[in-house]
Nucleic acid binder design. Structure first.
Lengths: 226, 226
DNA sequence: GTAAGTATGTGGTTATAACCACATTTTGAG
DNA sequence: CTCAAAATGTGGTTATAACCACATACTTAC
């Protein structure tokens, strides 16, 4: 199986496990590595799943596409992080979103559904896995709340500033790359792409930001709040 | 201590515990009952917390108020449910939102922070608590995603329909009460209150819905989608 | 390098929501 | 019941985003 166990032991899901525990966990989780091309759908909305994915290479976006073709991007999942764990752990809840490869990807698929079953197996690997998944889940919660903060301002500029401020804090720098192209950023902020481009243009003109492709720089001295 | 243990054993947090386990858990959690009046802030944004709240009576809303007085309501927490568990379980993360009593409330405050500590105590009550908290957390995730769905349509009507459809599904009826007054619904959907009233008026006129106070009825035969 | 294709930006128009002022209805206290 | 206060609704105006068409820039394959 083409996966680096040393790397896995550093991820939030398998943190703190011994080699033996990791092997036991991977076996119970029916771990398997899958590959996906850019823009290929990994998990489809509407299908129930007991599997979550752990990103080994590439990145994944979580999005919803309504019947009129409107896309809304909920989050972006980087290498080492997991997705769909919520649906895998809530029995009978069909996926409401698509998980899509944002680039060519290697994904470790894990059948985690059993963790939410009643039986109290106290194998140490299981306890550690559960503890880790709790940490992963509450973190994911913060990510989702974050998006709520980024989309609650009523103006495009407000949303852009909320998003960029929070990225800047996270990256601990005024200069950083974002994981989205313009269309994706628009779909993340729930605004029209051309309107977003226009607003970025205005903000550039006013000297608030530099924005070139997915690289941004905040010019706080120009009166950037937060 | 003024709390009904039989009731607690039915909540998602303490589900499946024996009396002894519940006592051990409550003691470790330094459980205490607090009372709050309508609109009193229970937990303030900006303060770190290792406590979560379990609603014994009344209900709580989770909201964010920016420096210009704009309110955004993230979720509504009913009797038996918990709030702030995310922040309590993520060390060093200050609360980003306020938890506010939506009516006069009795809240069981629980110091749950220790659950995210490293040490592997395998007391059964602790395992059950952890397992339950995982279930609670992933559920909370679905609630947060739900709000994303409700606020992603670009028009007020789209948001109202998304929200009401999902309430209708949840309540398994075309007729139901919502936990918000108009201003709160507007703040939940991130729209202006008067614009919301106007849109509800139009939808009433078109025969799509009946809406009186917080009681709604969907008239699907009139072409309500989903 | 060139061409084709993709991504990004911009002007113009229209639709819609925000905002303001105020009318009407409902609620609650006495 | 009466009054005051709060909640809800409505008309009118303005600000802004959506939408459309297209220009420009950038990327990739050849």
């Amino acid at each position: 199986m083409n996966m680096n166990k040393e790397y896995l032991k550093k991820t939030a899901v398998f943190r703190g496990m011994t080699d033996e525990e990791l092997d036991a966990a991977l076996s119970a989780l029916r771990a398997s590595v899958k590959e996906y091309e850019k823009d290929q759908v990994i998990l489809h909305a509407g299908t129930p799943t007991d599997m979550m994915g752990l990103v080994l290479e590439g990145s994944v976006r979580i999005e919803s596409n309504d019947m009129w073709g409107n896309r809304s991007i909920f989050s972006h999942v980087e290498k080492g992080q997991v997705f769909a764990e919520t649906y895998a752990l809530v029995p009978d809840e069909a996926l409401l979103v698509d998980a899509v490869a944002n680039q060519d990807c290697r994904i470790l698929m894990l059948r985690i559904g059993f963790l939410s079953e009643e039986k109290q197996d106290t194998a140490l690997w299981r306890l550690k896995l559960m503890s880790n998944m709790l940490a992963v889940s509450v973190r994911k919660n913060l990510v989702l709340s974050g998006r709520s903060f980024h989309t609650s301002p009523k103006t495009i500029r407000g949303r852009v500033m909320a998003y960029l401020s929070s990225m800047s804090l996270q990256k601990e720098s005024d200069e950083f790359d974002i994981p989205f192209d313009r269309q994706q950023l628009a779909d993340y902020l729930n605004v029209d792409r051309t309107a977003l481009s226009k607003e970025l243009g205005r903000m550039r003109k006013e000297g608030l930001i530099d924005a070139r492709k997915n690289h941004f720089r905040l010019r706080r001295e120009k009166g950037y709040p937060l």
